[in-house]
Design a protein around this nucleic acid. Structure first.
Lengths: 187, 187
DNA sequence: ATTGGTATTTGATTATTGTCAAAAGTGTTG
DNA sequence: CAACACTTTTGACAATAATCAAATACCAAT
């Protein structure tokens, strides 16, 4: 739990009272490779914080699994659309390796928002960071070449190559596995 | 101003006191076609709400203007990265037609957050909606064909064709103007 | 070390889109 | 209505990436 509070201090420092209340809402969970955190069709009612491990979000398109995001240590993850709207998720979330996460249900977050203004501020600030991150990824996907995107990814997440199969990285980058393989061979 | 409060009620209903405080922070501004709301290199210190009109965000790449988003009536707009981080914007924001907007400086928003918890909640909820919107756009850009994206755009923003030159729509969709023209000729 | 299963690379071909250049269309203004 | 500027379309060709298929590399387990 300490790593969690260390991490959120980068966003916004909570009072001790808020920290304690927050801590009581979290449940620790443990998963193994290929375990599903969420299956498409179900509603995602939890926000998760990855203490250790890795996972991927993917959905099925014409029988293929299209991975469109990854989560690693210190990431907040959820199926955002489902979590916010309460609708069924269209994506799956699967672990890439043995992982431990902290889970907090949506109702408890809302309870905290009402009791501690500062927790809502924390989340507001986290949203800002995640929005910027998504925006950058989007701009890159549309206006940089596949090779540049691959370089960026290696720079930002160098450990990804040893933890994620190439096909999933290719899907994440929006290119075919063969194209990614050819990009790599040219470096 | 009424249209603004009508609109934000879709997100979260503010108390009268908060509405009044919020209203006092806003300044109304008027712009004409090709006016710049923001020039790259400057810090964007304001959040804007478009009462009427249209604008586009674009940046310069190899001497070309690449439009990557549009704003229309009832949209909140700003150069998000610059607004949040306080760094210089890499993009420009230019009006596509005569427009009126409400502007609120960042410090005043933060003042409101401290005085009225509910205003921070409103913004948190707005962020959620905008995050989902961006996420959908991103998924579409990566996993749908250019023709599908064009159809979607026409469906969601049918008025865009009469208000925005084709080249800008093409950039927004991530394709060349010629390709978009050919997509249109096939429908 | 050998086997079997999975992941990655390579090759040949096809499909899609971009680029450059020119033509056609549209709208505004004197 | 003629001239001009600007937008959109069309054509020819080049570049990029996808697809399908096969070969190779890698890894874990016996």
């Amino acid at each position: 739990m300490q790593s969690f509070f260390n991490h959120i201090n980068n966003y916004y420092a909570l009072s001790l009272a808020a920290q304690e209340a927050l801590e009581e809402c979290f449940v620790k969970m443990e998963f193994y490779k290929n375990d599903l955190l969420l299956k498409e069709g179900n509603v995602c009612r939890y926000l998760y914080f990855i203490e250790r491990g890795a996972l991927r979000g993917f959905y099925n398109l014409d029988g293929k699994e299209i991975t469109h995001w990854f989560g690693f240590e210190n990431d907040f993850v959820t199926s955002f659309h489902s979590f916010i709207t309460g609708e069924a998720a269209v994506e799956n979330i699967m672990f890439l390796e043995y992982s431990t996460v902290w889970a907090i249900p949506k109702e408890k977050i809302q309870g905290l928002f009402d009791k501690f203004h500062e927790t809502e501020r924390l989340v507001r600030i986290v949203y800002e960071k995640y929005y910027i991150r998504l925006e950058e990824r989007f701009i890159n996907s549309q206006f940089k070449t596949a090779a540049e995107r691959y370089e960026n990814l290696l720079h930002q997440t160098p450990h990804i190559l040893t933890r994620v199969p190439l096909g999933q990285i290719a899907a994440y980058l929006g290119i075919s596995q063969e194209t990614l393989s050819r990009i790599r061979s040219k470096v």
